[in-house]
Simulated assay, not measured.
Amino acid sequence: MKLVLFDLDNTLLAGDSDFEWAQFLISKGVLDAEVHEARNQEFYDHYKAGTLDIHAFLDFQLAPLARHSREELDAWHREFLASRIRPMIGAPARALVRRHLDEGALTAIVTATNSFVTGPIAREFGIEHLIATIPAWENGRFTGKPRGAPSFKEGKIERVEAWLESLGYWWGSFESSHFYSDSHNDLPLLSLVSDPVAVDPDDTLRQHAQAQGWPVISLRNPQ
Rank of each mutant, 00 (worst) to 15 (best):
D45A: 15
A63G: 06
H208G: 05
H46D: 11
D45P: 02
V160Q: 00
L73H: 02
T118A: 11
E161D: 14
H184S: 11
R70N: 09
D74L: 12
W214S: 06
F24V: 04
P92L: 10
D186W: 00
D7Y: 07
P150T: 02
Q61S: 14
A14H: 02
L73Q: 03
D195M: 12
S83E: 12
A136D: 14
A93Y: 02
L3Q: 02
P150G: 02
L58I: 08
G155L: 06
N40G: 07
A209H: 03
Y44G: 00
H77M: 10
E175G: 14
A22W: 00
L190A: 01
N185V: 09
L164I: 04
V97D: 04
T143K: 07
W163T: 07
W137P: 00
A162H: 04
H100M: 14
L12A: 08
Y180D: 01
K28M: 11
A91T: 13
A66N: 09
P201T: 02
L58M: 13
L106F: 06
R220K: 15
V97W: 03
V216P: 01
N10K: 05
T11F: 01
R98H: 12
R220E: 12
R70D: 11
K48N: 13
F152C: 08
I134H: 03
N139W: 14
A95Q: 14
A56W: 07
V197F: 08
F142Q: 00
Q41E: 09
V35D: 04
